[in-house]
Nucleic acid binder design. Sequence first.
DNA 1: AATGAATGAGACTTCATTCAT
DNA 2: TATGAATGAAGTCTCATTCAT
Lengths: 198, 198, 198, 198
Amino acid sequence: MLTNDSEKKKIIIDAALKLFSKKGYTRARMMDIAKEAGMSYGLLYHYYKSKDAIFETIVEDWWSKLFSELASLKGSKLPIKNNLEKFIRFLLNAYATNPQQVEIYVTEVSRGFVYHSEHRVRENFLWVFALCEQLFAVYQDRGELRHDISTHHLANIFLGSIDSFMSNIVFGKVKITEDQGNRIVKSILDVFLHGATG
Amino acid sequence: MLTNDSEKKKIIIDAALKLFSKKGYTRARMMDIAKEAGMSYGLLYHYYKSKDAIFETIVEDWWSKLFSELASLKGSKLPIKNNLEKFIRFLLNAYATNPQQVEIYVTEVSRGFVYHSEHRVRENFLWVFALCEQLFAVYQDRGELRHDISTHHLANIFLGSIDSFMSNIVFGKVKITEDQGNRIVKSILDVFLHGATG
Amino acid sequence: MLTNDSEKKKIIIDAALKLFSKKGYTRARMMDIAKEAGMSYGLLYHYYKSKDAIFETIVEDWWSKLFSELASLKGSKLPIKNNLEKFIRFLLNAYATNPQQVEIYVTEVSRGFVYHSEHRVRENFLWVFALCEQLFAVYQDRGELRHDISTHHLANIFLGSIDSFMSNIVFGKVKITEDQGNRIVKSILDVFLHGATG
Amino acid sequence: MLTNDSEKKKIIIDAALKLFSKKGYTRARMMDIAKEAGMSYGLLYHYYKSKDAIFETIVEDWWSKLFSELASLKGSKLPIKNNLEKFIRFLLNAYATNPQQVEIYVTEVSRGFVYHSEHRVRENFLWVFALCEQLFAVYQDRGELRHDISTHHLANIFLGSIDSFMSNIVFGKVKITEDQGNRIVKSILDVFLHGATG
DNA sequence: AATGAATGAGACTTCATTCAT
DNA sequence: TATGAATGAAGTCTCATTCAT
């Protein structure tokens, strides 16, 4: 058969992705999602327990990608510049290939978790920060990062910079070209590593 | 009389501030706000046209503060370091004195404006960025900032760094001491101006 | 004003009484109850938390009447015949004055508590039996009831007899005249106390 | 083959019996019944037209057993005591051998037929009463039952007594020993025939 | 200025039943 | 015979807003 169980689930997730990113969690109705997915709303409940379960699936997927990427970076022995570049590119690429998931991450999760307090978002965030800090600690030890600023502060600055670009892209609803992507990567790395003063 | 018209409005705004920051816009009910304000929910409609009008009032207030601060910085002739420090301190101080408003800004406005598309949030954001870019352009002209990175990118990195600290503070629900505040300011300035490598 | 808060609640209860007894709990919709009560369904939720809360109010009212009657009988020093007669008359009269409540008791509570397991129906039933047994124990001590049958069995037989008449009346949807009521009372007392054989 | 058509039907009925008695008609879902029966819920519709048809089958089976027992008693020439004892034992035994069917009878049919008005439950009940009254009329003619109480009243008292014990057993979810059964039979007969006073 | 009773659109979810395979 | 994906009617409940008093 053409569409087996997991394919149907993917169709639903894709539809939900579209609707959540377009209208936000609250304003996206199950009926909208079903219509987008080309099925009756009743069928959604055949595959997912509730609206929230659909949301959770999307979010968990994002976190797991993020965690695994960070874990892979931590294991790498590359110089800091190359490693951080990989991470920035991973995020920019995530947006390029799946803009809606990033949009939901940005609008519903990154800031909106008042709405979804049950989703352990806070814990996941802290985890991302912790992984990033551990990465920076390694580079401090190797003398590639200054010691007079805590890894926590460094993580805030680095992640915040990326986040800002992502938000801008998401809210600007723009597609970024490869060239623009390259310049963003370069800007972040240059400023983060060497500063904005010449 | 003790509470005239504008005082009542302030009471309502304060109550809404508390509830929006505690539960988020959607989950804060008019009844909750009224109870917090010590009045009946019917009366809210005497002072504000709708729930949304209350929200808008809060948000507009935030924007106008932000705009006027940025305008004042643009007019200043101080060296970049001092000027940026003023801006960072303005934001940290805003949280210290009115944490709920900052919380709403962070959770509902900064990222969550999918829910409030009618509020010209996008325009306001772009305006903040534009003002920041104009400020940076001045410093590029004065040779205090490098020219090989666009002011737009610089603004993203700078504002994103601050944003990240603010989010952390908001979501961590922590009070920051003066000393911690000083260190945050120093970290942002150091890295932004001189980079994270020694 | 003509209809204050508790009067409105009574209107709702009366409407619910009518609908529950007519259609049963499950088939009676909130909208039906509201229509019967002459108000919008939203208003029902102003006065009661949920459909179940309305049901519970009805049922609790019935139990409290029943308990207080049984307690009063237990305190009485009348000969058994008079005392039991009072109890039978209380129940028959309850049906005469509030047939719907009795109907709900019979259809939803007495037998249907599979549907309402959360309502402590079992406990209430056991309590009624216990009170009845205590009453019979007093009469066994006073020599007015035989000792070779346990009070538990006696209670089953006595209450079951009444219950059967009530069910018949409820399901027959008949009004019983005073004369018919008297004959029922006499029959139950005669057979219970002296037996069906001459 | 091992399971032919009628065996499959029996498996379904047994599963439904279990579920209806456990959760009640409304709360027992077709899917639950299918799972219990070890088949897909779609297949249920191959053997029975609807959920209600399954229920009806169960109920009709109960009624037919009851009617045939009562008919047999009516044909018997035994003294009243022996004949009534047979009837009581038939019912107690029915519970012992098929408690779920009795449970459904008690919870759904005996009182709950508001939910199933289409099932001619009222007519069946009246029929049982009528048969019982005819039986009592025979004994009144033979001088074994007093004449000053109508057969209808006698039937109510007798059937109600038994019903009460059955309900107690069902709701207490207890298994009764042979000895306890004997005592119940004796109590009912003693009180019904000779009264509760010495 | 003040109250809170009243309204009803709108959202989620359940589940008996149908039907293509 | 057998499966379970698919459908959609129906029901409960929430809450912003209106309005009579």
